[in-house]
Simulated assay, not measured.
Amino acid sequence: MKELCSKILTPTDVRVRLSFPTATTREHFKLLEGSQSLDFQVRDSYSKVWTFRLCTGKNGHLKPVLTKGWRDFVKRMGLKVGDKVIFVVHGNHNDQLGIQVKRNIKLLGNEHWADL
């Protein structure tokens, strides 16, 4: 398993859409010529498959965001500002995407990232 990217969630990520790292989009997701969106699937730690839409803006605005499916994922997983999402690749050909979610908790005075 290889980590593609991780992100600590902001208020916009939780309420509206996930701002997705541009470098990861360029390296792993090849948008079709002239296309500004791509649907892809990820499997969570409970083996549920989620479909997200990765969109880039028009007129050269390249900041990618996850739209379709993202808000349902946030609600179902109970995600909050400050939680972390980690996108991973696994499989023999690095073609299977996964998503992990973690929450920073304090335990005995120390901070730990716990799986949700």
Rank of each mutant, 00 (worst) to 15 (best):
V88I: 11
I105C: 13
L18F: 10
E111P: 01
K106G: 02
D39G: 10
R17N: 10
Y46H: 13
L97N: 02
L18R: 02
L66D: 00
W70M: 07
L31R: 03
Q41A: 15
M77E: 09
R76W: 08
M1L: 14
R53W: 09
L108M: 14
L116A: 00
Q96W: 07
V101D: 00
F73I: 04
C55Q: 06
F40Y: 06
G34M: 05
E27C: 15
F20E: 02
K84H: 04
D44T: 11
W50I: 03
R53V: 04
L116K: 06
P11H: 11
V14H: 02
L4W: 03
F40T: 06
R43Y: 04
T22W: 09
H61Q: 12
C55W: 06
L31N: 03
L62P: 01
K63V: 08
C5K: 05
V16C: 10
R17G: 02
L66G: 00
E27K: 14
Q100R: 06
N94D: 15
I8F: 11
T12A: 15
N59C: 05
D39A: 11
L107M: 11
T22A: 10
T67M: 01
V14R: 00
H93S: 14
S47P: 04
S45R: 11
V42R: 00
S19W: 09
S45Q: 11
K84I: 13
T10Q: 12
K30R: 13
I8G: 07
P64E: 00
M77N: 07
T56G: 01
S37P: 03
G34T: 01
A23S: 15
N110T: 03
G57R: 03
H112C: 05
V14I: 13
S35H: 14
L9M: 08
V81N: 08
A23C: 13
D95G: 11
A114I: 05
V81T: 13
D39S: 14
F29R: 05
K48I: 04
H61P: 01
G78R: 10
V74Y: 03
R26M: 14
K58D: 12
K58G: 09
R17H: 09
I86W: 02
L108P: 00
L54W: 01
H28S: 07
R103T: 01
E3A: 05
E3G: 05
K80F: 06
D115M: 00
K30L: 08
D72C: 08
R71A: 07
S45W: 07
G82E: 06
S35L: 13
W70N: 00
N92Y: 10
N110W: 01
F29W: 08
S47K: 12
Q100S: 11
I105M: 10
S45F: 14
S45T: 12
V65T: 01
R53N: 10
V89C: 09
G98R: 01
R26I: 12
